[in-house]
Design a binder for these strands. Structure first.
Lengths: 131, 131
DNA sequence: GCATCTATATGCAAGATGCAAATAGCGATG
DNA sequence: CATCGCTATTTGCATCTTGCATATAGATGC
């Protein structure tokens, strides 16, 4: 993997910590789509705007999700392009958690919309002044 | 302040940590609207869906924003309903940071849209199954 | 053999968070 | 005036999270 998926734009400053919070639900979504091992998920996350995640953070997130019973893993020894792969698969519990995350993200989106609307309104009125 | 603004709904589990990330930009927005001290901001945050924030977390966030030069504070001794108030006011730098936050939140909103759209699509196709 | 890519894991310092508690001024009630 | 409840801010601390470096190691091509 080359220098692709570096962090840029919104993923800096306070927003970078914000981005990390979306790793968990996005992993659930990707694993809901199909079972996978960690390494390619790094690239897939960047397609969702989560580029540049630390590999260690990703692997730790997957292990923790397994501890919670949201996923289960097994080793794939043959046919890899390197060492064995730990392949994760969503459980029924993980499926439920994903559903809850989807609901939470919708509520969160409404909150963000409220913030942005309030900001836009105030910019319009105040012509971008500060006091 | 009575029992209002307790945490509920989306602000539980992983999403509660997510919510914390919006405290900083929301404070910038509220202080952009008008200068204020910490205590009433607790209630105002809950109007933006950030109810139940720990007072200590709020006060620490304000102090840190001051360390970074995004706000300045002064003491209001007279006319309070209790002890002196530390009143915060947005600086020009804070105004710029708020603008950056607004841009970041818009990008983040797009990311969430992509996640939710992908989830909805997959639910439609798979009838909510997991594999 | 050696470099490179694939693949996962650990260790640690620094930073963020939750919860409890300390401090203290003000107003109302008895 | 003693006390209660609300207003108001701060500190301490244990724990959790994060970023960064590093260890390990199989596969492939030169």
């Amino acid at each position: 993997m080359r220098g692709r998926g570096r962090r840029r734009g919104w993923q800096q400053g306070g927003a970078s910590r914000l981005a990390m919070r979306f790793v968990e639900p996005t992993l659930l979504l990707l694993l809901h789509h199909r079972p996978a091992h960690g390494y390619p998920l790094i690239e897939q996350l960047s397609e969702y705007g989560l580029g540049g995640i630390e590999p260690s953070a990703l692997y730790r997130a997957l292990r923790e999700m397994e501890d919670r019973g949201w996923v289960v893993s097994c080793w794939e020894e043959a046919g890899t392009l390197g060492p064995p792969r730990r392949v994760y698969r969503l459980t029924e519990l993980g499926h439920e958690v994903l559903g809850q995350w989807a609901a939470d993200l919708q509520e969160m989106r409404q909150m963000v919309d409220r913030i942005l609307a309030s900001y836009a309104l105030h910019m319009e009125e105040g012509e971008g002044d500060y006091h």
